[in-house]
């Protein structure tokens, strides 16, 4: 089993550190580019969503990446968050709208929904965790 984790600051400036964590994970995880790219994208989208939308939150964000059976499992935990599931509570995005009606908001979560195989959310005592599963086969 491959597992890496880190606590990172809750600002956009920490994104390179988040991506370095993914790089360290994929250096030893038995997963190819077809898994790596969606996992990196989902990690970025959820992390930036937390940073942008939970502005009152304090403290670090915890990120865990691990393999479990045939899955890569990504957990992102905010220890100071109101109950808000960014994936289930976000409105759907209509990707068939003409250009002049398109908005970029919501596109990141839309991609996460499309690219991950399973998404779970838990919240208790102001601690919210989003767990994403991506199959490696």
């Amino acid at each position: 089993m491959t597992e890496v984790s880190a606590s990172v600051k809750r600002n956009l400036g920490a994104l390179p550190e988040v991506m370095r964590l993914a790089e360290a994970f994929f250096a030893s995880a038995p997963a190819g580019a077809s898994v790596r790219f969606p996992v990196e994208l989902a990690l970025e989208e959820i992390f930036t969503n937390i940073v942008r939308h939970n502005r009152e939150g304090t403290g670090a964000i915890r990120i865990d990446l691990r393999t479990a059976g045939q899955d890569v499992v990504i957990s992102i935990t905010d220890f100071d968050a109101p109950r808000f599931d960014p994936v289930s509570d976000a409105p759907p995005v209509d990707i068939d709208k003409p250009l002049d009606e398109r908005q970029s908001g919501g596109l990141g979560i839309h991609l996460v929904r499309k690219m991950m195989d399973r998404i779970e959310y838990s919240h208790s005592n102001r601690t919210g965790t989003i767990t994403l599963h991506k199959r490696m086969d």
């Binding site: 970025e44 989208e45 250009l99 002049d100 970029s104 596109l107 990141g108």
Partner: peptide
């Protein structure tokens, strides 16, 4: 090598302006 929604947002804004 990689693009996320942040990059897509830039392309969308530029395309709207140019079109």
């Amino acid at each position: 090598e990689y693009i996320s929604s942040a990059g897509l947002g830039v392309l969308l804004a530029a395309q709207k302006k140019l079109v």
